[in-house]
Simulated scan of single mutants.
Amino acid sequence: MKMRSQRGLTLLGVLVTGVIAAFVLVVGFRSVPVINEYLAIKRILGIVADESDKGASLIEVRRSFDRRRQIDDVSSVGGADLTIDKSGVRTVIDVEYTRKIPLLANVSLSIDLHPSSEPR
């Protein structure tokens, strides 16, 4: 009788794979609100830039952003944080901010974000 070698994962292999998969899932689940907020800010910046192109002043643009951010539950940035450039044909509004995502105990993920009204 000829012995065939068995194939498959060892218990240690299953545990390591499970830990890696759990870590990826935790990072993914905790990143979803940050991504949703980034997309909301980007959308609001586009709307507010169009208002600025139609003649709204800088103060009105900042107030409009603040009103819209309250509706969309954006808490990372405010109207005072906006950088508004009206020098070109189209108004460009952007903002830079950093979000820290707590993962486990004292381990955090820091993400630098830079949404803009200018399409890329």
Rank of each mutant, 00 (worst) to 15 (best):
D50S: 14
L104G: 04
E60D: 12
R120G: 15
V32Q: 07
D53Y: 06
E37H: 02
S117G: 12
R30F: 09
A22F: 13
T98G: 02
R120W: 06
M1W: 13
R30D: 05
Y38A: 06
L39H: 14
I20R: 03
R69C: 02
V77S: 00
R63F: 00
S57H: 05
G78S: 13
D73Y: 04
N106H: 13
A105P: 04
D94G: 12
G88N: 03
V89D: 14
I20A: 14
I71W: 01
A22V: 11
E118M: 11
T10D: 09
G13Q: 09
P102R: 02
D50Q: 13
S110K: 14
M1L: 12
V24S: 06
H114S: 13
G13W: 03
L109H: 09
A80Q: 11
I41C: 03
K42I: 05
L58A: 08
Q6F: 09
G8F: 03
K100A: 14
R30E: 11
L103A: 04
G8I: 07
S57D: 12
D81Y: 02
V27E: 08
D50T: 14
V16I: 15
K2C: 03
K54H: 15
E118Q: 15
G79H: 03
D112Y: 05
R4C: 08
S31L: 10
S76Y: 11
R63Q: 13
Y97M: 06
G88V: 00
S52P: 04
V24G: 11
S87C: 04
R90N: 12
G18D: 05
V34L: 00
L25M: 13
K100D: 15
E96S: 12
N106V: 11
D94C: 02
S117N: 10
Y97N: 06
T10N: 11
S31K: 02
R63Y: 01
M3D: 11
R7F: 10
G88Y: 01
F29G: 06
I71R: 06
V16R: 06
L58C: 00
V48W: 00
K100F: 07
I84K: 05
L15W: 01
L39I: 07
I59V: 13
A40G: 10
S31M: 11
S52R: 09
S116L: 09
I47P: 01
E37S: 08
D73V: 12
P119Y: 10
A49H: 08
Q70P: 01
L11W: 09
T10L: 09
S117A: 08
D94R: 08
V34S: 03
S57P: 01
F23G: 15
R62M: 03
D112R: 13
L58Y: 02
R69A: 14
S5P: 14
P102S: 09
Y97I: 08
A22Y: 07
K86N: 12
K54G: 14
I35E: 10
I44C: 01
I44K: 00
V26T: 15
M3R: 14
M3L: 15
V34I: 06
D72N: 13
A22H: 04
L103P: 07
R4F: 10
A56L: 15
F29A: 10
I47Y: 09
L82M: 06
D50W: 06
I35G: 02
L11E: 08
D112I: 07
G13P: 06
L11K: 06
K42G: 10
V61H: 00
G88M: 00
N106I: 09
V32C: 01
A105Y: 09
K42E: 15
V77T: 03
